[in-house]
Design a protein around this nucleic acid. Sequence first.
DNA 1: CATCTATGCGCAATCGTATGCGCAATCTCT
DNA 2: AGAGATTGCGCATACGATTGCGCATAGATG
Lengths: 351, 351
Amino acid sequence: MDSPTTDVTPKASISRVTSKEVAVAAGVHQSTVSRALRGDPGVADSTRSMIKELAQALGYVPNRSARTLREQGSRVVGVMVDNLDNPFYHLLLAHIHRGVSEAGYSTVLLVDPLHRRADFSRLERLLDSSLDGLVVSTAALDSDTPSRLVQQGIPIVLAVRSVPGLDVDIVEPDNMAAGREAARHLSELGHESIAVIMGPAVVSTSAERLRGVLDVAGDAIAPENIVHGQYSHDSGQSLLQRVMQRKDPPTAIIAGNDIIAIGVLDSARRAGIRVPEDLSIIGFDDIPMSSWHSFRLTTVHQDVQGMAIQAARCLIESIQNPDHRPAHYRYPASLTVRGTTAPPSAAQPPR
Amino acid sequence: MDSPTTDVTPKASISRVTSKEVAVAAGVHQSTVSRALRGDPGVADSTRSMIKELAQALGYVPNRSARTLREQGSRVVGVMVDNLDNPFYHLLLAHIHRGVSEAGYSTVLLVDPLHRRADFSRLERLLDSSLDGLVVSTAALDSDTPSRLVQQGIPIVLAVRSVPGLDVDIVEPDNMAAGREAARHLSELGHESIAVIMGPAVVSTSAERLRGVLDVAGDAIAPENIVHGQYSHDSGQSLLQRVMQRKDPPTAIIAGNDIIAIGVLDSARRAGIRVPEDLSIIGFDDIPMSSWHSFRLTTVHQDVQGMAIQAARCLIESIQNPDHRPAHYRYPASLTVRGTTAPPSAAQPPR
DNA sequence: CATCTATGCGCAATCGTATGCGCAATCTCT
DNA sequence: AGAGATTGCGCATACGATTGCGCATAGATG
């Protein structure tokens, strides 16, 4: 396997049985097989059942590529995410799946790690026209992938992430409002020194949540207490260490999402920092894990289901109606207070 | 807030541009366009670059279905899992993706919830021939889906789950050995009353791990202390409650996998049961989450990467070589002791 | 019994791409 | 300069399924 990519031409390893072969076996024309199996009325019942049995026996399965080519559509849509580790996407996927299923569409999932750009071309090639549409939930602000896809003529919907200057449906949380909610909660508790541990700066959720936070609590946040990393547990864990090493450590952390927040929480516990007595932590998304007893994370809830269903609706609509006019949907955020936020302790713990 | 953007450019009805249209624009035959773009030597350099520019400008993208139909292969493989919530699969996926990428294949992910059988038909239809192969990591022991797929002539590999009586490649952990490891660890610590909280009984990993456990520690496990549920946090959480309500609650829990184990751990903490002092917990898989500071779960490690790479290799091999003879690979298990197991408190001096 | 209609099925074109083959134009060499 | 070798491109077909159209056969009707 360490040999360089030898260009082996893709070859059908197995001879699949075609409708023509069924036709020969049945003693009818191939078109009759097609009609019989598709339920066309112009076939005698006796012929139809005979063909059906024969097809079954021979293990006939229609070739999807041929059908797609002929029917100009596959009735399969893709959902593209950059990350499987964030459970937020699992719900999103499940609900998008449900939504498009009702319209008779199937779903495949494309995973496209942000950091591995080299895979983009392969992904794009994959899509071109075997998919009828695509929900993209992965685009960095500076990515041109969505626009390339749009140019290819594939209906797409941007979910949870947004990219400016694109004439497509966008379904996203109201990130700025969410950021404001988080900041207001901490302010009202009395925190005056807050650090923000965000995800990648190029992702819309990060940038907008941060703006909302600064809107409300800008005064409590020193510029060096704003740090960016990945949307991951590891990232939250290591960035907390960095932030707490400063001379005046903050009394509260706003994390870019719940995964980061949980990393922060783990990191704090490991360092012997008490949460929420010594340090308050708040996240975004309200993934199921956040309510687990070991975490009980305060967070800003997002309506995943609502967004997923809307995204599915938009996608189906823009597939079926060429005159569909793209719209921009924003979903409100709501604070969910659990056990990781509290007023700052009166006396700063001397260390 | 969520007002649709009013000023929308009328969506240009997108007709996908074909190689023939490019040919007309370039003043050559369609076949020349195809050759030029595919790098066929029989095209003059000047013609080639002219066509390339034109194709670019027109936004030409080859139709995948047509190409697949013509080339008898799509160079796309699928990975089918029943569940996205188990991070174990994320690594599996990532490594399978890497493996098949090296051979020039792309990956799509099919999610097929065990409990929603109705979706099966749609999934099968989805596959038929737009995929060159499939890694199945979802089959219940009694499922006939894999055999149906085999009958359709799609090369498949079973990963991490197995189904008896199928002439395909199987790559799985040595579940019985893993079960024995877990049981031996608890026995050596002195536990004499153990409960087993497993996943669905119909899944091979569950059945086999249980058999391994009973092999070693059958005497310590009362029949009513063997329970089955889902591979989920919720399931672990609620099943622990049920198990601990009995008259003689066990001093240790063997969970079907790490997700269940963490559910058990959360449940124990919520009930005020100290872990590991009052209750030892052990899981399987060693997912990344298990090493988080909040859990520090003792578990039986599985070589995900090794299995994923082997599965990828097998799949590619059986796609490219029609005479491929299926094999059965078993990967060893190794105990990873962390903080959730200890001798039962009665046998241990107070700390 | 002849004519009309409905029914059942075959013929052939089509979707977009890839490719073997053949013909024409250009180039090479004596 | 003429014959052969080479190059560049068009023609036609195949991949497998769907579908409009038309023809034949059966049954119905006067």
